[in-house]
């Protein structure tokens, strides 16, 4: 007990261990698993990342014209990096940056909005395949 009292007394003259975080930035180690970044130009839209993502934080919205739109929810992402490992063009199309995502407020719709997106993406996918199918049938019948 007395040795820890002495220790506590000596601690008064030692520097404190606290990081002054909001005032000073914390230096993260290199290779920190942060936000997933997507490059529209490089992506070949193979959907592999969407398939492997455990929580389903990456979705592709299927436009009727055929092109796809990448959608990502950083508040759902678990930052495991599996999508980048699955990506055929890692570091180009999809990469894991060392940035941290900021917190969201209610207006950002981190959860509510994503339910809507999930539905929309699924419906767009279904509508697209249905349209394709009917187009195929049509072209076949035309032949």
């Amino acid at each position: 007990m007395f040795s820890s009292m002495l220790e506590a007394f000596l601690n008064l003259f030692r520097p404190i261990r606290t990081l002054q975080y909001p005032a000073e930035e914390i230096i993260l180690p290199s290779g920190y698993r942060g936000l997933i970044e997507h490059d529209h130009e490089a992506c070949i839209y193979c959907d592999k990342c969407e398939k492997v993502c455990p929580p389903g934080a990456i979705l592709f919205f299927q436009h009727e014209a055929g092109e796809k739109e990448y959608r990502y929810n950083p508040w759902l992402c678990i930052y495991c990096g599996e999508c980048v490992r699955a990506c055929p063009k890692p570091e180009e199309a999809l990469r894991q940056s060392e940035k941290k995502q900021l917190s969201a407020v209610a207006a950002d719709g981190a959860n509510e909005q994503w339910f809507v997106w999930e539905d929309a993406c699924r419906q767009s996918r279904e509508a697209y395949t249905a349209a394709k199918k009917s187009a195929k049938i049509q072209s076949k019948s035309e032949e």
Binding site: P29, Y32, R33, I78, Y79, C80, G81, E82
Partner: peptide, 9 residues
């Protein structure tokens, strides 16, 4: 080592 403090993956 792993890039995260708790969930290492």
């Amino acid at each position: 080592i792993s890039g995260n403090r708790i969930q290492f993956d």
